[in-house]
Simulated scan of single mutants.
Amino acid sequence: MSSSLVETVDVNAPVELSWALWSDVTKWPSFLSHVERVDPLDGRCFTWWLSLPGADKYFTAELTEVIEEERIAWKTVAGVHHAGVVTFHRLSDTTSRVTLQIEYDPQGFVEHLGALTNLDKALTNYDLGQFQRLAEELAAQ
């Protein structure tokens, strides 16, 4: 059973700032609550270290598409099946919209339960809220 999420947040920060924050994979642990760390392997591949309820996981993903200030897409090449894309939309000179789409195969009881109860959606919304707060703090500086 594959699970799919699509969530969007509007950010009071220019698209350039939203892009810069998200495109730096080493910043992900500061706004993605389940990501412990991300280790870049080269310019296109990186390993994610996750801490999830009931399980710690890691997987290696590669960037499949990068269009500056517009789109970042990835898919796993080792570990769990996971793919995603985040898109950046300029709403004005000072605001942007960030949309995150994720496809994954839930593994084990906890992940299946999360997909069935929309806990995965709640976690994604929380993380986008954390991203929004961080980007807006940076924009205010």
Rank of each mutant, 00 (worst) to 15 (best):
M1E: 12
M1H: 09
M1P: 14
S3A: 15
S4I: 09
S4C: 09
S4R: 12
S4Q: 12
V6H: 07
V6K: 11
A13G: 01
A13I: 03
P14W: 09
P14K: 06
V15A: 06
E16P: 03
A20G: 01
A20V: 01
L21M: 02
L21Q: 00
W22Q: 10
W22T: 15
S23M: 01
D24Y: 04
V25R: 04
V25N: 10
V25K: 05
T26L: 14
K27Y: 05
K27P: 00
P29T: 00
S30C: 03
S30P: 00
S30G: 01
F31L: 03
V35R: 06
E36Y: 14
V38L: 15
D39P: 07
D42N: 15
G43Q: 05
R44F: 11
C45E: 14
W48M: 13
W49Y: 15
L50A: 09
L52T: 07
P53Q: 12
P53I: 10
P53R: 03
P53F: 12
G54K: 02
G54V: 05
K57I: 11
K57Q: 11
K57W: 11
F59D: 03
T60Q: 13
T60C: 09
T60M: 06
A61G: 14
E62G: 14
E62H: 07
L63G: 06
E65N: 06
E65R: 12
E68Y: 05
E69R: 12
E69N: 08
R71A: 08
I72M: 07
A73G: 10
A73S: 15
W74F: 10
K75H: 05
T76V: 03
V77K: 04
A78F: 05
G79Q: 04
V80C: 07
V80E: 09
H81F: 08
H81L: 13
H82T: 08
A83C: 10
A83E: 13
A83V: 07
G84R: 03
V85R: 11
V86R: 01
T87N: 04
T87Y: 02
F88L: 00
F88T: 00
H89L: 14
R90A: 13
L91K: 08
S92Y: 13
D93V: 08
D93T: 06
D93R: 07
T94Q: 09
T95M: 12
R97C: 13
R97E: 14
R97H: 03
R97Y: 02
V98I: 13
T99M: 08
T99R: 05
Q101N: 03
I102T: 10
Y104I: 01
Y104S: 04
Y104F: 14
D105S: 11
G108K: 04
F109W: 11
F109N: 03
H112D: 09
H112R: 14
L113E: 02
G114S: 12
G114C: 14
G114Q: 10
A115Y: 08
A115L: 04
L116I: 12
L116R: 14
N118D: 13
N118W: 08
N118E: 10
D120W: 02
D120M: 04
L123M: 08
T124Y: 06
N125W: 07
N125Q: 13
N125T: 15
Y126D: 14
Y126P: 05
D127C: 00
D127K: 01
D127R: 04
L128N: 01
G129A: 04
G129W: 01
G129C: 01
Q130P: 02
Q130V: 09
Q132P: 08
Q132T: 08
R133D: 09
L134Y: 11
A135N: 01
A135M: 01
E136V: 02
L138K: 15
A140G: 10
Q141V: 06
